[in-house]
Amino acid sequence: MTDLPDTDQEAEIADALREAAAFRQTGRATINDIARIAKVSKKTVSRVINESPLVKPRTRHLVKVIIAELGFTPDPQARALALRRSFLVGMVYDNPSPQYVVNMQRGILDGLEETDFQLVLRPVNRADANYWHRLRSFIQQHKPFGLILPPSVSEDEELVDMLREHEVDYVRIASVELDTPARMIRTHDAEGAAQAARHLCALGHVDIAHIQGPESFRSAHERRSGFVRGLGESGRSLPADLIAEAGYTFDSGLQAMERLIYAKRRPTAVFAGNDEMATGAYVAVRKAGLRIPEDISIVGFDDTPIAGRLWPALTTVRLPIREMGRAAAKLLLDQAAGKAPAETISFSPEIVVRDSAAPPPKAG
Rank of each mutant, 00 (worst) to 15 (best):
V45A: 13
R136L: 13
G111P: 02
G90W: 15
P53L: 05
M162C: 05
I34S: 03
A194T: 00
F87K: 15
L159N: 00
L109M: 12
W311Q: 10
Q118H: 13
A127R: 08
D169N: 14
E158Q: 04
E113C: 09
M162P: 02
P341Y: 02
V171N: 04
A329C: 12
H221M: 13
K330Y: 09
E10V: 15
A281G: 14
I298L: 05
M257T: 13
R79P: 10
L238Y: 01
Q141C: 11
R183Y: 05
N50M: 09
Q118S: 12
G289V: 01
A328N: 06
A80R: 13
P239W: 08
I173T: 07
I211C: 13
I34T: 07
T59C: 04
R186P: 08
A337C: 06
V63L: 06
G338W: 02
A193L: 02
R60L: 06
S348H: 15
P359Q: 05
E191L: 03
D295H: 02
A281I: 09
A194Q: 02
V352E: 02
E167C: 12
L254I: 12
P123E: 05
V160I: 02
I261Q: 06
E167V: 08
A284P: 11
S297Q: 11
R18D: 10
D94W: 09
I139H: 06
Q105D: 13
S41W: 12
V124A: 01
G146I: 08
A22F: 06
R322E: 14
A80L: 11
L149G: 04
P361L: 04
C201L: 14
V124E: 03
E323I: 13
Q118E: 10
A16S: 09
K64I: 14
T44Y: 07
L119P: 04
V299I: 01
D275H: 06
D275V: 06
Q99G: 13
D302C: 09
P320S: 08
H188L: 03
T73V: 05
S234E: 11
Q9L: 15
R18L: 11
R309L: 14
D275K: 04
E294N: 06
Y282V: 15
V45I: 11
F23Y: 11
I49M: 10
M1C: 10
S86K: 14
P239V: 10
L17Q: 04
P151I: 04
L149K: 03
R309I: 12
A14E: 07
V65L: 10
G90M: 15
L242C: 02
V65G: 13
R18V: 08
L149A: 03
L109R: 14
A68K: 13
S97H: 13
A220T: 01
R106C: 07
R223L: 01
R134L: 13
P57G: 03
R136W: 10
V48W: 07
R326S: 10
L147A: 06
T187W: 09
G71H: 04
S356P: 00
E276L: 14
G192H: 02
F271P: 00
Q335F: 00
K64R: 12
T2D: 15
E113T: 15
T268R: 09
E233R: 00
